[in-house]
Design a protein around this nucleic acid. Sequence first.
DNA 1: CTGAAAGCGCTAACAC
DNA 2: GTGTTAGCGCTTTCAG
Lengths: 354, 354
Amino acid sequence: MKRRVRIKDIARMANVSVGTVDRVIHRRGEVSEESFRKIMAILEKTGYEPNLIARSLSSGKTFNIVVLIPNPAQDEYWKMAEEGVHLAEEEWAHHRVHIKISHFNLYNKGSFKRAAQSLLKSNPDGVLTAPIFHQEALDFFAACQKKKIPFVLFNNNVSENVGLGYVGQDLYQSGQVGAELLQIDQKEPGTYAILHIYDDISNSTHLKEKERGFKDYFLHLNGSKNKVTSLDLNMGHRQTLEKDLIKLLREKGLKGLLVTTSKGASVVSSVLEKHGKNGIRLVAYDLLQENLHYLKKGIIDFLINQNSRRQAFTGVAQLANYLVFKREPRVPYLFPLEIITRQNLSSYLKSMQH
Amino acid sequence: MKRRVRIKDIARMANVSVGTVDRVIHRRGEVSEESFRKIMAILEKTGYEPNLIARSLSSGKTFNIVVLIPNPAQDEYWKMAEEGVHLAEEEWAHHRVHIKISHFNLYNKGSFKRAAQSLLKSNPDGVLTAPIFHQEALDFFAACQKKKIPFVLFNNNVSENVGLGYVGQDLYQSGQVGAELLQIDQKEPGTYAILHIYDDISNSTHLKEKERGFKDYFLHLNGSKNKVTSLDLNMGHRQTLEKDLIKLLREKGLKGLLVTTSKGASVVSSVLEKHGKNGIRLVAYDLLQENLHYLKKGIIDFLINQNSRRQAFTGVAQLANYLVFKREPRVPYLFPLEIITRQNLSSYLKSMQH
DNA sequence: CTGAAAGCGCTAACAC
DNA sequence: GTGTTAGCGCTTTCAG
């Protein structure tokens, strides 16, 4: 059980001081050609690996990370994300990583812009955010770049991502999985709908990504004669929403619905429950309380778990690893598309306790 | 951004030295009533949290963990488990945790006993193992207890578990999920079979747990007129195996098969492929190469991912956390029952790269 | 009972 | 260019 080689060991072997070794390890220059070569050789030969724990302890740096996410009071999904941030906060506190959470209104681009503005003023060492508003996010990222503030995205990606990375699911594939779950074992062709249900305004560039996957799935299904539609519904106008929904449900041959927003599932579920399920399959997103309720009841057939909690946790970890240990995140950090049924639900709930 | 309070701060506030503070923190005694009280009060008030990183760095202790698992050459499932161990090894090396892997023959109780014996002689600080052989495992655990060696189980639990904890899935529930996946959207009652397929000998107390869940699922299905059977097949006798299998496949009304061993899936798949799938649903375990092949081909309909890699990784982590940071593992550490389909498979493969 | 001091492995400021 | 040294926060030994 031979111990790891330390800087001190390298120094002795090279007949130099630890200071010099440190300089070549960090390529800080001010080292003679000769020493550099010799030390590098020994580093190689011994397979030196720095003790990152000691490094972080000694460096004495502190880091401020800002997490910019929707207000958790508006949405259980974002509440779970915030929990993940708090978990990460505890974990990284030992490394002097401090986290500040900044909220914006999920349905108000202006609030995002304002929050982003004041965030920039505080000159954080890193930023984690969910780029819900496409254009506004791009502007923000440009500002971050100018100020050389590293940033990580989660929940949804933007194709122009120039940050440190993305943590989350492949939304296109997510749409495909949703489609598959609706279509499994359906013998007859029929109608399948993808529903975007939001509050107030649509901010849905990333929901369209799910829609693409959804539609492509049916397109590539060999010889399928299915009809595929999409529908945008506003939770703000509950009356119209229900009317539109019921109209859809009445359509003959309707086989399945995929609801893209985690919040929208309960609305659809309640209507479907009143109207009668009639074998119409329903797939939705995330382990929100209401969704669990309808899953257990059999109104929702499958949930796809986006795990905002772990996404946020991982997002912070990516950033902190970069700052503290200079570990460049491998991009993107893709999450599995977890399928939740009535039977495996409890195993997911239990595993979330960790 | 006020910094965390350190031992040094506490000491100053209490007008004592850091040594004394350390003594009360660790209840090492040799401290006057008065000092103890005063320091405790300050500890409380300031909400002192030790810096575990610094603690581990300073303590200078090294730990030897032995991982006792089946030979990875025998089985891809165990190969993945070993990968997880290696990952954990890297991660914990900074904390002076050394890991030694010891193999036994998956089909030979004697080899387990021997490996366990010699393991005990090395007096490790902790043990992680998969208790494949029930009775032998119990004997081994008793020995560990006597020598006060903490141990963690993974892959399958034993009800008499007196160790530090269990890392893995709930096998009873696993059987239920398997049953559900076979039964989803089946309109007519029919026959469902659970197959235990092993090499040489059966070591299957834990497979029976899956069987219990499987059977109970159908039992509790309201008003179901399904027939449920179980079958033990020996891969060593390929001829008999195929004959028995084909006999089963010919049974009228056969709707679905659950294969409990990850290795068995490919055998059943190949037979099913030759014989014709005829709408017989097949559910199996784990992301083995061959299983992926048959999943993509549509022979296997669903896989349940046991994630031996992450199980082993987590098992080591539980043990290391206990040894290094004295963190008592919350028991048991249950893993989700992940459902893999053709569409979400790639998301799992990608997410495994982390 | 208590304090002082050395040291874990590494960084960084400061001499020479 | 290079070596020395003082920490980072905590543990542990050794005087007293």
